[in-house]
């Protein structure tokens, strides 16, 4: 069964208090929740929390579930920042809504896509998931900006990230398209990509718009 969004938010809050503030019991005023709120009842029924007059505390099952919620939230934040290049001010709000939509399969895929990151954009730790433990050796993210590739390495264009379609069209005209392999010939003073047999010079702004998967033969 799925938790309601509000219940997830409460779990997340409790987990943060627990892990980052060393506060096992959170009192009602801090939580700004009513004792008889439906979310509280929901969490009580699942035995995720226990309630007393002092406040609420996470039980073992609740702790595990809360950890996953936090993980989803922080992965969502990373996704917003690393891949979607969203403005800082929008990240928090969008990530909040996004986390509730992430199912486990999807969150692991996103985690892999992002290269199993350890920290959220605000430098708080992201609790590791199953996928991270499985893939301990894979440290590099799968999809990165071409500007992060090293000189001499190759990548397959994953997608073009662009705000304006004029810029998109230019990259496409140069033959830089998803599925095409590029080699980073040079990074300074301008970027030089080798695309097929053609060399393309780009400034940093254009190069950043190209997201690549690192090729193994690179």
């Amino acid at each position: 069964m799925r938790l309601s969004d509000n219940a997830e938010e409460i779990l997340e809050y409790l987990w943060r208090m627990n892990n980052e503030m060393d506060k096992e019991v959170v009192n009602w005023e801090e939580l700004k929740e009513d004792k008889d709120a439906p979310e509280i009842k929901e969490l009580l029924d699942l035995k995720y929390i226990s309630v007393s007059d002092d406040g609420i505390r996470l039980r073992d099952d609740g702790l595990k579930e809360a950890e996953k919620t936090v993980r989803r939230h922080r992965l969502a934040e990373r996704l917003m920042v690393d891949v979607f290049d969203l403005k800082e001010s929008l990240v928090e709000d969008t990530a909040c809504r996004f986390e509730h939509l992430l199912r486990r399969e999807v969150q692991d895929s996103i985690c892999t896509l992002l290269g199993h990151p350890n920290y959220c954009p605000h430098h708080k730790p992201i609790p590791p998931g199953r996928c991270c433990r499985k893939a301990e050796r894979v440290v590099k993210p799968i999809v990165i900006r071409s500007t992060e590739l090293e000189k001499g390495s190759k990548g397959i264009v994953a997608f073009l990230h662009i705000q304006n379609s004029n810029k998109l069209q230019k990259l496409m005209a140069m033959g830089i398209l998803p599925g095409i392999q590029i080699e980073i010939v040079q990074k300074f003073p301008s970027y030089v990509f080798k695309v097929g047999q053609t060399y393309i010079a780009l400034d940093k702004e254009m190069a950043r718009a190209v997201l690549v998967r690192k090729s193994d033969d690179g």
Partner: peptide
């Protein structure tokens, strides 16, 4: 301005 240019052989 943006810079993009083909570098011919």
């Amino acid at each position: 301005p943006l810079f993009y240019m083909e570098v011919p052989p």
